[in-house]
Amino acid sequence: MKLSDQFEQRFHAMINHYPTKRSVLVPSLLYAQDELGYLTDELIAEMAQRLDLTDLEIRNVISYYSMLTTQPRGKFNVQVCTNIACMLRGGEEILDHCKRKLGIGHKGTTRDGLFSLEEVECIGACSWAPAAQVNYDFHENLTPERMNEVLQDYRRKVHQQENC
């Protein structure tokens, strides 16, 4: 299957870093997912073929890692941490706020396909709690108001892209 040049560059560079081919699997899946939105059957077959693995082995690996998914989700994946440090400083309120604001629950996706919501475990922002990640961007010291702005920013970004 056709993957981006950037993916291919990364993949072919990485495969030389290890004595076994399958070592590239986890980071490659994540990079592929970044491009495709989720890990499609086609991609799984492609990786299996490239790395001399079975589809089953690839699926077993995918299902182990919480960031990897075989289900489509929104353009922006809002991941709110509610683990202990965030919980103490209002992480759950941020999550509830997002649920209300986006009208979706844990692992839900908005109807326009823009946002998905996920309650996640510690993302390493404990001293700046509560925190959330939208895709890979960290947003810290959140309040419901700050969260509104964050979501608004992403919406604006999409509109700008669409208008260009």
């Binding site: 990485m14 870093h17 986890v26 980071p27 182990y64 890692y65 990897l68 475990e121």
Partner: peptide
């Protein structure tokens, strides 16, 4: 040689 390697979410 030093290489980077990435995870995908697993404590």
């Amino acid at each position: 040689d030093v290489y980077w390697h990435g995870g995908a979410g697993a404590y």
